[in-house]
Each structure stands twice: as C-alpha cells, then as structure tokens.
C-alpha cells in the first residue's frame, strides 16, 4: 500500500505539473498550431491582459502545488515505512507558523493588487463613459437581438434597425453596448473576447470590447468563416443550451455598406436579417 499510495499521489503531482507546463498548458498558453484544442483563442484588446493574469496566478499556484504535493508525497512515502521508534513529539513551531503565514499572505496581496487595474479598465466605466452606444443587446428566451442606432448614431430615431442572431461589429475600436434582458437572467459570453456579463431584467448594463483585427485575422487564418460564438452563460430555462449567436467583424467600409443595406431593408419593412 505504501508504494501504491505514494505512486498515486506522485501521479497527481506529475500530471498536475504537466497541465501547467506540458503541451497546450495553462502557464505558457496554447501552442499556435493547435489553437482550437484547449484554449479558445483570444482576439480582444483586454483578452491578453486576462490571460496574462490567469498565467500569473497559475505560476504562483504551480509553485505552491509543487511545494506542497512534493512534501506530501515525500512524507507519506518516508514515514509510512515500518519503524520501531516513536514519531517526533512536536506540537508545532512558532517560527514556521509565522513563515508560512507571512509568505503566502504576501503572495496573495500581490495577486489581489495585480488584478485591480485590469478589472477597473474592463468594468468600471473608464471606457464606457460618455461614449456613444454602438448597439443595444437584448436577451430573451432563447435568442439574442441587437438594435443599432443607424447612420445618425442616435437611438429612438427612424433609421434604427434590429438584427437577430448575428452581431456585426467594427474592428480596432472601443465599442460600447447596452445589455438588457426582457425576461430572465442571461449572460452575454463571448469566449474569444474574454467577455462575460449577465443580462438582468430591469437593469441596463454597459459593456465594451475592442476586437484586435490582427489577432482576429491570425486566429482565423486560412478559414472562410471568421465569425465566432456568442454563448448564454447563465441558466435561462429549458432552451438555455441553444441560445446561441455569432459575431461578425467588418472593416469600416464594409460596415458602412452593411449598415446602409440594413437601413434600406428596415424602411422596406422586410423581416430583420438573421
């Protein structure tokens, strides 16, 4: 049992370390040639920062994991050997306690402070304040609908138009959206943009993102379809699993063209696209 159990614990250690530093790992990120395997590629301006923080924490976790698991394996293996004498009679050590309180405390404080800037940038209004709203996002059971202000950039005017399923955006620009829900909670989750925000009925929540066109081109190199998923990430009823949408990125010129088409369609009273 001694060998088997030590082996099991060691296997957890080795496999754990492998997930941090092996192929497509948590610490260094995905290997470029296998983007679509573990990680969703990241194509927004703040996606990199989120991934960096994930890896920063991963690094500290790896250190702690290796340290504690190695000691555990070593102690279990060494001290479960048959022995005639008694165990060490010790009730603890004040010095050790102070050390292993102070060092993790320091690390944790570093982790906590390292997060704050990114969080403030993404959520706390710096990027959304006084910016025109690019589109409004409406969630309802079980689809996504989008309302654009039209060429005059103002909502509530005649040239507003609606689309469903597909959100069409411009690249390389901070885009602000108002997120709303008609019925229950939903969550607007775009894995590739590293963006997730619940849609709450009765609340209007501003969100923003900025698609980095270079990263976007790189992620879809050689592919015809360069659209990507919108996912509902908050349980919203029986059809939660099929509440999907897509995001299509256009350059400024094509976007203007698309917008003109939509407005024309809107005035001809056609069904909204989608």
């Amino acid at each position: 049992m001694r060998y088997l159990f030590s082996l099991l614990l060691a296997a957890v250690l080795v496999f754990g370390v492998w997930t941090f530093v092996g192929y497509d790992n948590w610490l260094l990120g995905p290997s470029p040639e296998s983007y679509h395997w573990w990680w969703a590629p990241e194509i927004s301006t703040y996606g990199q920062r989120i991934d960096f923080l994930f890896r920063l924490i991963a690094m500290m976790e790896l250190v702690m994991f290796v340290l504690t698991m190695t000691l555990l394996v070593a102690f279990v293996f060494k001290y479960s050997a048959p022995r005639k004498d008694k165990a060490v009679f010790s009730h603890g050590s004040h010095k050790l306690e102070m050390t292993w309180t102070a060092i993790p405390a320091g690390l944790l404080v570093v982790i906590a402070f390292s997060q704050m800037g990114t969080w403030a940038d993404i959520k706390m209004g710096g990027h959304t304040k006084d910016k025109p709203v690019f589109a409004e996002i409406y969630a309802s059971q079980f689809d996504w609908r989008f309302r654009y202000p039209g060429p005059d950039k103002r909502f509530g005017t005649a040239d507003d138009f609606d689309t469903a399923y597909e959100l069409v955006v411009r690249a390389d620009e901070d885009l602000v959206f108002n997120l709303r829900s008609h019925d229950v909670l939903h969550s607007f989750f775009v894995p590739m943009l590293r963006l997730k925000q619940d849609a709450v009925p009765g609340m209007t929540i501003p969100i923003w993102f900025n698609v980095d066109s270079e990263e976007w081109q790189a992620a879809f190199e050689g592919q015809e379809d360069k659209t990507f998923d919108i996912i509902c990430a908050e349980l919203c009823g029986w059809g939660h699993y099929k509440m999907s949408g897509r995001i299509r990125v256009l350059d400024d010129e094509s976007f203007a063209k698309w917008e003109a088409e939509q407005v024309a369609r809107h005035f001809s009273n056609d069904e909204p696209a989608g």
């Binding site: 989120i50 923080l53 994930f54 924490i57 976790e61 944790l108 997060q115 990114t118 590293r194 963006l195």
Partner: peptide, 11 residues
C-alpha cells in the same frame, strides 16, 4: 484563486 481574481473570473 483563479475564481477569486475578478478579471480572470470574467472568463
């Protein structure tokens, strides 16, 4: 710890 870190938790 990943989940506690707000920016990482967004994802």
């Amino acid at each position: 710890i990943w989940m506690a870190a707000t920016p990482v938790d967004i994802y």
